[in-house]
Design a protein around this nucleic acid. Sequence first.
DNA 1: GTGAAAGCGCTAACAC
DNA 2: GTGTTAGCGCTTTCAC
Lengths: 366, 366
Amino acid sequence: MKTKVVKSDTHLRRRPATAHEVARHAGVSQSAVSRAFTTGASIGMQTRAKVMEAAKRLGYRPNLVARSLITRRSNIVGIAVPVSENPFYYAALDALSLAFANIGYRVLLFTVDPVAGSDPVLEEVLRYRVDGLVLISTSLSSHFADECMQLGLPVIHFNRKTDSRCASSVTGDNLHGARMIAAFLHAAGHKRFGFIAGLDDSSTGRDREAGYTGYLRAQGITSIERRPGNYSTAQARLAVRSLLDSGKRPDAMFCASDHMAIVALDVAQTEFGLMPGKDISIAGFDNIDLAGWRIFGLTTYSQPIPAMVAQTIRLLQCHFQRDTPATAHYVMPGELIVRSSARKPKTGLIQSNGQWVWRPGKTSQR
Amino acid sequence: MKTKVVKSDTHLRRRPATAHEVARHAGVSQSAVSRAFTTGASIGMQTRAKVMEAAKRLGYRPNLVARSLITRRSNIVGIAVPVSENPFYYAALDALSLAFANIGYRVLLFTVDPVAGSDPVLEEVLRYRVDGLVLISTSLSSHFADECMQLGLPVIHFNRKTDSRCASSVTGDNLHGARMIAAFLHAAGHKRFGFIAGLDDSSTGRDREAGYTGYLRAQGITSIERRPGNYSTAQARLAVRSLLDSGKRPDAMFCASDHMAIVALDVAQTEFGLMPGKDISIAGFDNIDLAGWRIFGLTTYSQPIPAMVAQTIRLLQCHFQRDTPATAHYVMPGELIVRSSARKPKTGLIQSNGQWVWRPGKTSQR
DNA sequence: GTGAAAGCGCTAACAC
DNA sequence: GTGTTAGCGCTTTCAC
């Protein structure tokens, strides 16, 4: 390891300038300084100018810590994201973070163990008096949910439902999406079905499983080879191998997330020499970016991240403005995106926004 | 969109309990409460017990905003991450965030436009009085760097060097790594070389290009087909297409990041029917998780994220403890990881930690 | 070991 | 419009 250390010039470390100092230099009162930096405060043009001039000279920056102590609003929201290789979480985090920046909020990030849930870290986060909490795919004990509600702190589950009436949720349509996937594979003529499960204690994983198996059961198909993938690369890999190695190798496989589905694609192709869409059908859920790459061409049910984010923001803003802590549960519809990884049914395929989607009601337009 | 709104029970919203309230309930002074929650403070067993009991009853949580106002330390570091689809940034963010959690720091996340740099958002972040700044692959104007140094605020560039003597940096060995890639491809007998560039104003991108072209030039190879990929999926895709479509299609191609390299793999295979490692050699830089998947099997030079993160943490802690704002520049060595996407030289391949790596000095052990 | 008092940097009444 | 005053919830001398 090459290193180069530079002894820094011993600039006299100035503490950040305070409003008081600015006031002195500008020859005004300290509250004038405060007003100059508050949009919509009543202050004269010239006073403001004097303040701004002095502020610039001193490199003054209002201390938001002090401000939030008195206003009781930090303009910070906490976002929990599970430690995981699943790109969906990062896409969500990115979109949320950008959206929050747009409405003037900062993000306090905390990574949580996906099986432990967010409780352990939450204790710490609450001490920072965040204005809201978004939990991406992580659970929260009802104890904490209650406490947050009592504190008037809005908490929103993103991509996970919650039984608690104290927290809101915004999710994709897991139940319907998984049913659609099942219907799609069934309509394509498949007979032997497999399933790579997510985490058992995640509502998302359970709903996707319930939708899939529920539909198939209604068609008289009850034996579904199931393996636990736990949303992890390594475990999904093992699960897929086990499925493909088993005596009753399925000819259609639904993975509870795109991330696990592309693992399946990798394993099926490179380890078993199977050609997806021909020798075997593989479908996922989420429609992450990678799913659209030609090398994967994953058929999947989409989660509309932009709409989900917009809804999340709306919910929080609503809470911030008036103070009514109403909780709501949103289920955002997606679309079955048809690509090459799964055999296609004869009917129902239509083109929409430059993509092939499946709408079983419609007639085929291929 | 299905919606379900639940009118919440109008629990009387209690403001969070304060130390004062706890003190009253416990029959002690407010400073006793403070001491009870300060590790290492001198306080009697029974006083502490009384405080803790009252605190639990009231659901008291020390207000860290108020604390940091007086201690002038927020225990929060700001982390800048570029808006990009590059998985490397997220891997870095994840590792950093976890490491900071371990030493008791929270992360204030801010997403920045990769070409604009972090300046625009920084102004805002500084108002939160973070204790340190880690900038992942983003630039910072020397103006801000100066200001941060003067404020005694340590800033560390992660995966980017900086000319400023006011900020530290931790990077992989871009120059050497890129030279290794060039040497590897050259040793494998390639004659026509291509390059997919990153961002022109990133030191990382420049070093990787300089290392690659520098080595080849020393071998008498001066004409290298270059296309700008800008670390973006879409642009890399166009760049790769243009390269493969051109009259002088290279038989070896180095992409300035793994992310662009797997785009290249996708395009080469699915659009041009080329088999990587046979019809064409493709190499990347970073060694992201996906690079190791068999479907990609990307030959690449690794960036040791754990070591880089450890170094970053060490640098910051050093700054936090004693107050010497020395800046340092660390270049962490990686390894040329040999997989299937590029033709292999006859010699120099050895196995290490379950992977094939290339060390041109050693004799082959294949 | 414990309490009283001062004050971190700011906002928000309140007078003028 | 502008200055004065009183805190926000906490840590930290300083006496005892």
